[in-house]
Design a protein around this nucleic acid. Structure first.
Lengths: 158, 158
DNA sequence: AATGAAAGCACACTGGT
DNA sequence: ACCAGTGTGCTTTCATT
């Protein structure tokens, strides 16, 4: 994991379909060598996959929300999480510390569909408490944060 | 946007480097036709990009958090959002309704770095209030939600 | 680890149904 | 809207350093 690897990761994050030639030109190595490095990054578990990004609005799911939820005491986390995959409006989910147990990201066609999702979560997935916030917009970040070498000793003096 | 397009989207979300041949085999069309459809989906803005996924833990950023923040009254949203790109620990950001203005996802090396990020956000980016929750785990969802045809009339009767 | 050569594939284009 | 053929460019394997 040297600086070159970080540059490759950064390039692949911004363009997941970049060819090994493109990448090679960027880091001044042969396409061949780049391919080897990328394979190694995948094998090491640093690169976990390549995914297309879909505009949910263009798909007619223009109502996106963050949904904080807590489970009933008698519900096992595993059951709940497996059940989540059955709710197609659930885009992602985090298990969290704090006041609520999970935060879900939802994408719905409209409020009617959202209302149905609430009922399903409460009715059949063991959700006890639920708080929702509308996502007005996702902020586009232009940071190459992967280029930074993390250093444990770089925090400020006290 | 027919059913075939939705299948292509779903396939490309799970494997963003799938070739047109792979996709063609899946939907029973020639690679050629698939390529045309994919290009059309990109041009229509449904497919917005392809991105590599990186394991933050493997990169040494094992402390990930959700950070709800509110801005000071005198801070313009545009300035704040542009400034966010300067903070490499910020992975994503949503503008939200509700008690807080934004929710950030952070990835830090450790608590020292996180402490620095808090200081920077409050000190130079106009953050007034801040509440953090630790991300214990991201739930792996196995739903092919894009395959579903959204239908505005499918909600329950009242 | 990195490179060059050559075989095997995938892709973009054209044209045709 | 879909497919076949063709030329070009990319990826992969192997040999070499």
């Amino acid at each position: 994991m040297d600086q070159v690897d970080r540059e490759l990761l950064s390039a692949l994050v911004s363009d997941g379909r970049a060819t090994y030639q493109d990448l090679g030109a960027k880091v001044r190595l042969s396409p061949n060598t780049v391919a080897e490095r990328v394979r190694r990054l995948q094998h090491n578990g640093v690169l976990t996959g390549f995914h297309a990004q879909v505009d949910l609005e263009a798909l007619g799911r223009s109502l996106t929300l963050l949904c904080d939820i807590s489970l009933r005491e008698d519900v096992a986390r595993g059951d709940f999480e497996r059940g989540l995959s059955e709710v197609p409006q659930v885009i992602s989910a985090f298990h969290l510390t704090g006041e609520y147990d999970y935060e879900l990201r939802l994408a719905c066609v409209g409020t009617d569909e959202f209302e149905d999702v609430i009922d399903v979560l409460k009715g059949t997935h063991g959700v006890r408490r639920l708080r929702s916030r509308l996502i007005l917009r996702e902020v586009r970040l232009s940071s190459d944060s992967l280029l930074r070498q993390p250093s444990k000793s770089s925090h400020r003096k006290r």
